[in-house]
Nucleic acid binder design. Structure first.
Length: 508
RNA sequence: GGUCCCAUCGUCUAAUGGUUAGGACAUCAGGUUUUCAUCCUGAAAAUAGGGGUUCGAUUCCCCUUGGGAUCACCA
């Protein structure tokens, strides 16, 4: 019988989450959900210096906003609580003692400065730095590590792992068969002088204690795996299934995507009106595909189809344009009522989940739409749905439906057809338009019929007449179809704008 | 420099010995009575290089080149 699937996402609370972290979390979550297992959030806050206030909340907000719900976590205690490493110091102490008892750990005889010198020496010799080359066997047997210094933050001496260097061959669910020689196994620090464990030690202990079945993480840890394998053996722990994710590269493709490269907070995408499901689909296909020609996946499909075997080994670049396309795709698929609620901030971006503070009640409508009725806004939204790539575009797409835009003659002067006409001719055409639409009931169908008649009567091409009317009634660089737009604007606004435009042409 | 990983259109990728090397994003050109977008049609666009193995290599092996990760009391 196979072990129950329990996966974890274990970030350190040092800031926000970007697509890289989210992808790791997503894949771990998918694995748990498809197997009916559990997904655990664990905070690796063992470096007090780097901890950022509010980061923990930010992380859980981000996961929740995307629908990556966790079964156990700092704010959702389960059988293996606590889920914050800073609250698990006793557990690491217990395991450290085991290593001391079995002679597999020792008190670090050197201070920081000395180690730094060793490192420089190794670098000068163009060799990889191996700590164990600088300690004697006698030093490595010094198990008189003072546990009293533990967690006091004062006068502590680091505890080192006494490694047993050997060659390893192991299987990685993504990378396949891996192998390394003994030269990469080293005596790393288990417990720092401040009494906190290192990641290298804490995660091994926690994954075992928490019964984690699959460890999914970025390739920055790949080189350390032999050390971990050595530690598993010393601890007599069964090792979990390992899966190494390829890096997500920046847009230039020359290094791993990072905050420095402008990798955005995933919540910023939500604030700009990207849909959680579009983000999920996009991020999942950054380094994974199901082998078919399907390009867009619902989260449900991902749970069904995701497979570590099909994760790429090489890095993939983050391509903003593809995300934009995916988001537009999801927006077009959406029911108008649902889209309206999201765009109007009537519900959080993630259905059925608690909204995060930052996005609660966020409306994307332009301020000018405040007084407009829901029915009116819905009609407007229906017209721009297929051209909106993300919600933050809504104001520029719809502002003219709610307020009169200033007359901008450059729209006519720069128009390739209209610029050839005298303003008096254009003015005349607008007046004929008024006459033609006077009897319309302002339904889109009837408007279209009247406009067709006008085209016939004036003998002008659509590119001339319809362009002119479109500009004169919106003064926007772009707008939806003319008949639909006028139908939504209504007779009153349409005529008011036509008159304004006639006057403007007279005065120009 | 040591160690490990990777290498198909600009980008994300399919094809795990036999295909005119497929799809999508982006780009360009046409079409859908105006604009922007959608949608449709079409175009251009790739197996890094060199050796093997094989009747036959994108695919297997080796070398070169290129790229990435790592070599912390950070994770």
């Amino acid at each position: 019988m196979s072990k129950a699937v329990r996966t974890r996402f274990a970030p350190s609370p040092t800031g926000y989450l970007h697509v890289g972290g989210i992808r790791t979390a997503l894949f771990a979550w998918l694995l748990a959900r498809q197997a009916g297992g559990q997904f655990v959030l664990r905070l690796e806050d063992t470096d007090q210096k780097r901890e950022v206030e509010g980061a923990a909340q930010h992380i859980s907000d981000s996961l929740r906003a995307l629908g990556l719900d966790y079964d156990e976590g700092p704010d959702k205690p389960g059988d293996y609580a606590p889920y914050r490493q800073s609250e698990r110091l006793d557990i690491y102490k217990k395991w450290a003692q085991k290593l001391l008892d079995s002679g597999r750990a020792y008190a670090d005889p050197y201070g920081n400065e000395e180690v730094q010198k060793f490192r420089e020496q190794a670098q000068k010799e163009k060799k990889a730095f191996l700590y164990r080359n600088f300690v004697s066997e006698e030093q490595r047997n010094d198990t008189a590590w003072n546990p009293k210094a533990y967690a006091t933050g004062r006068g502590g001496v680091p505890l080192r792992f006494k490694s047993d260097p050997k060659a390893y061959a192991w299987h990685d669910e993504v990378m396949g068969e891996m192998s390394t020689g003994p030269e990469v196994v080293d005596d790393f620090v288990l417990i720092k002088s401040d009494g906190f464990p290192t990641y290298n030690f804490a995660h091994i202990v926690d994954d075992a204690e928490m019964r984690i079945s699959h460890v999914i993480r970025g390739q920055e840890f790949l080189a350390s795996v032999p050390n971990y394998l050595n530690l598993y053996e010393a601890l007599k722990l069964e090792r979990p299934i390992l899966a190494t994710m390829p890096p997500i590269m920046n847009e230039q493709g020359n290094k791993k995507l990072s905050k420095r490269d402008g990798a955005k907070d995933i919540l910023d995408y939500l604030r700009e009106g990207y849909l959680p499901e579009a983000l999920i689909s996009f991020i999942a296909t950054l380094g994974w595909n199901d082998g078919t020609e399907q390009e867009i996946f619902t989260t449900k499909e991902l749970i069904d189809k995701f497979d570590l075997d099909r994760v790429q080994k090489g890095g993939a670049r983050f391509d903003q344009r593809r995300l934009l396309w995916a988001n537009g795709h999801f927006i077009r698929q959406m029911e108008l009522d649902e889209l309206y609620e999201l765009v109007s901030g009537q519900r959080g971006l993630k259905t059925g989940e608690r909204r995060t503070e930052s996005e609660e009640g966020q409306s994307f409508w332009p301020a000018e739409a405040d007084e407009a009725s829901e029915a009116y806004k819905k009609q407007v939204l229906g017209l721009v749905q297929e051209r909106m790539k993300y919600f933050a575009e809504l104001p520029e797409l719809t502002r003219f439906f709610f307020t009169d835009l200033p007359v901008d003659m450059s729209l006519i002067k720069n128009h390739k057809k209209l610029k050839k006409f005298d303003t008096s001719e254009l003015k005349d055409l607008l007046q004929r338009t008024e006459n033609a639409l006077e009897t319309s009931d302002f339904s889109a169908d009837d408007l279209q019929a009247k406009l067709n008649q006008l085209l016939e009567d004036t003998g002008h091409k659509p590119a001339v007449l319809l362009s002119l009317i479109r500009i004169a009634t919106t003064w926007a660089p772009a707008s939806p179809g003319l008949a639909e737009t006028l139908a939504v604007l209504g007779k009153q606004k349409t005529f008011a704008r036509l008159k304004t435009s006639v006057k403007a042409l007279e005065n120009s």
